[in-house]
Amino acid sequence: MTAPSPDAQVPRVLDETGPAAPPRANGELVFDHVWEGRLFGVTMALFRTGAFAWDEFRERLIEEIGDWERRHGDGEEYRYYERWLAAFQRLVTEKGLCRAEDLASRLRELAARPAGHDH
């Protein structure tokens, strides 16, 4: 699939005050946690720069989901964006966009922050 120009990838909205219901009117939030929305945004923003082809992400996502489904029985809670996170982490490290050791040391730094740092 060829990467279209970045501008072509921004969905424009025809009529922001139209009668169709906004997503929240369907009775659910679109993301369960703030980090899920951030992660979605990071993935799409990086995709728009042309840093990866969508299929490169999708094939890893399929692997991560399939792997989870083989390992976990019924009754265990499936969290889609955790699979997305695993796929995205593999994508950016395998493509050399982010080094695994940089990620590990950043995780240690973030985990070492005092509790309640952002409140």
Partner: peptide
């Protein structure tokens, strides 16, 4: 998961990739 997502976001942002 929150930390991991934040780590990825900050690293990619600092590198100027997004």
């Amino acid at each position: 998961h929150e930390l991991r997502a934040e780590a990825l976001e900050t690293l990619l942002t600092e590198k100027g990739l997004v």
